[in-house]
Amino acid sequence: MLDLTLIKAITLDLDDTLWPVWPAIERAEQALLDWLARHAPRTAALQAQPAARHEIREHVNGLHPELKHNLSALRTKAIRLALSRSGEDPDLAEPAFDIFFAARNQVTLFGDVPQSLEFLAGRFPLVALSNGNADIERIGIGPYFKASLSAQQFGVGKPDPRIFRAAATAAGVQPHEVLHVGDDAALDVLAALDCGMQAVWVNRAGLPWPHDALPHQAVATLAELCGVLAT
């Protein structure tokens, strides 16, 4: 069970905790294809083939292991490679990525999230902690957060304890005073526990818990967590 007396700050995962990520990614992929169809049609035809798109991404990932946490850079390099292979202008990669990234941040928050963020931010400093490249300012939830820390920005991602400790520092507290909240059993919950934090598993899909070590609390929604913290 949670020890509410210890909590002085909350770190929050983003993708699949505050919104479903794959609908946003799929919309962004389509926005990118639509833009390429107008500006680089041969590349659009190549990118429309799932096998080719996967091969290009894997090739870029293999060439640039140092960028494994920088999803934006990897995406841009993959677009550039597709343009080059198609005989079209590789300098279109940056504006093409801008189209993708704008759509990637057009997320649909889970219904309980806006009110829950308002509740949580009114009681604790909140720090966004994500392995993804979502931009909380573009999404419109930036005012709720004291800080935002991503693997892309920090250079390592969850479950590395360094990014959890950095998030605690950003909140102005010690790790044991942090409650981390996220949907991923390993990257969020187990990793936070290993750092001495309390951890809440947001299990919107009603899945069975897959590990021996347990979260301090499991909830189906952020609203349920707010109810726990209000007691």
Rank of each mutant, 00 (worst) to 15 (best):
N61L: 11
N61G: 13
N61D: 13
G62I: 05
G62N: 13
L63R: 14
H64Q: 14
H64A: 09
H64D: 13
P65L: 11
E66D: 13
E66A: 12
L67H: 09
L67C: 11
L67W: 10
H69N: 15
H69R: 14
N70T: 08
N70C: 06
N70K: 06
L71W: 05
L71A: 11
A73K: 09
A73G: 09
L74F: 05
L74A: 07
R75Q: 07
R75P: 05
T76M: 12
T76F: 06
K77L: 11
K77Y: 12
A78L: 04
A78N: 04
I79L: 05
I79T: 04
R80L: 09
R80I: 05
R80E: 06
L81V: 14
L81Y: 12
L81T: 09
L81E: 09
A82L: 10
L83D: 02
L83A: 02
L83T: 01
S84W: 15
S84N: 15
S84P: 15
S84V: 15
S84L: 14
R85E: 15
S86P: 10
G87A: 09
G87S: 07
E88G: 01
E88W: 02
D89T: 10
D89A: 06
D91M: 12
D91N: 09
L92D: 03
A93Y: 00
A93F: 01
A93E: 01
E94M: 10
E94W: 08
P95V: 01
P95S: 04
P95G: 02
P95M: 02
F97G: 00
F97L: 03
F97A: 00
F97D: 00
F97C: 02
D98S: 04
I99E: 04
F100A: 00
F101G: 03
A102Q: 13
A102E: 15
A102F: 07
A102P: 08
